[in-house]
Design a binder for these strands. Structure first.
Lengths: 216, 216
DNA sequence: TCGTTCCGAAACTGTTGCGTTCCGTAAAGA
DNA sequence: TCTTTACGGAACGCAACAGTTTCGGAACGA
């Protein structure tokens, strides 16, 4: 079909065929504009025209790089921050507090918050979106998972602790408050949250649940 | 403007002016169809044409009762079930288990689940939708709130317990799992959840958080 | 210089959906 | 019977949006 094809979103000047090479700055501007639009109006209101206008770019320049609206939307969404860093203070309790404070803050101050809300509703109706949502959640959880497992290894939690459940319990409250527009979970409340759940996890371990291991 | 006006969604035969009275069955059929459509495609895909077709009704008949798509959508959404009943077994632990099992089941088996997901994403972008979402959540929480307060009165939890926080913690995990398409929270896991949180709430009470009282 | 591919901008096509209007018909009161 | 308002159904105007094409012009290799 197209001669010097390079369908990666990356607009680097890699043209092999003849003719004018692609302008790398156009590709960057498009992705930045896509992130702006996505954060402003969410996935449902995300339009290619708006991205083109915001980037100062013709629509053809977008469609030369991304074949459909959906591909551009997904790439912009996957780049939207909420990167969690492992605090590793040596104390499981303090690590979790830092994690959850950062989670709450980033949900409310970065585009990832509205974006997540949009993806969730899209996934509720659109089967195609569900794996993307699941993957996004799982990737963010992996960092915190390592944190908790380290705590278990240090003996701060019983050996048989179900880490996945614990993370859903801790993060669930922060996500729930954010998604339902409740009051922000500030640091003092996070400390209560972590202390309560850790205390419960330690004491409840003596009465093991007979439930399924939950392969999350 | 219109002569025998009765702009309530209710299609009861209350016409005072001359002419043929409104058919009550049409109004009922429209609301039922609206609920079906809403559950099937969510608020974003909710179209008046689809409701009219599903109800076997002309669009004019809909617009005679609801002035805009939004009013019909909100009325249909507000009627979508997820009514929680207070078990009142005499044990706080057992009451909470029943509450949360019912919550998880209804989210996954009634239209209220997809509907909630759609409302959440709409609220993330649309300021007008936020109060409706907040109200919906608060109303559902009221029943569980009474349950926990009864438990506090019985001495099953310390007197100073922040009931709102506790509910967000308990419900948060169930909502989170549902909204992110994680594995269902079945009864054994609910029992672990309740036992863990109650144990934590009892022991953490000795170390009161210095945080804000959180007026939820 | 020539051919090719890029650029931003704009026009265009086709679809979808809101809200309105008109049709022929039905059900009420006067 | 006559007037008024309802009904289902269909058409219409209008706007928004995805994706394509066309335009004049610019940047590369041959």
């Amino acid at each position: 079909m197209t001669p010097g094809v390079h369908t990666t979103g990356e607009g680097a000047t890699l043209a092999r065929g003849p003719g004018r090479p692609r302008d790398a700055r156009a590709g960057v501007a498009i992705l930045e504009a896509a992130a702006r639009v996505l954060a402003a109006v969410g996935p449902q209101g995300f339009t290619v025209d708006a991205v083109a206008a915001s980037a100062g770019v013709g629509k053809a320049t977008i469609y030369r790089r991304w074949p459909t609206r959906a591909t551009l939307l997904l790439e912009a969404a996957s780049r939207l921050g909420l990167e969690l860093t492992d605090p590793d203070t040596g104390s499981l309790r303090d690590d979790l507090v830092e994690h959850l404070v950062a989670l709450g803050t980033k949900l409310r101050t970065t585009p990832s918050g509205p974006m997540l809300a949009g993806i969730i509703s899209e996934a509720a109706v659109n089967d195609e979106m569900r794996p993307h949502l699941r993957r996004w959640v799982t990737e963010r959880r992996a960092v915190a998972q390592a944190t908790v497992e380290r705590g278990v290894a240090r003996g701060e939690l019983p050996a048989g602790t179900d880490v996945g459940r614990l993370l859903d319990l801790l993060g669930g409250m922060v996500f729930f408050r954010f998604l339902t527009n409740g009051p922000a979970v500030e640091r003092p409340e996070v400390e209560w949250l972590v202390d309560t759940v850790l205390a419960g996890a330690r004491s409840a371990a003596s009465v093991p649940a007979d439930g399924s291991p939950d392969p999350a």
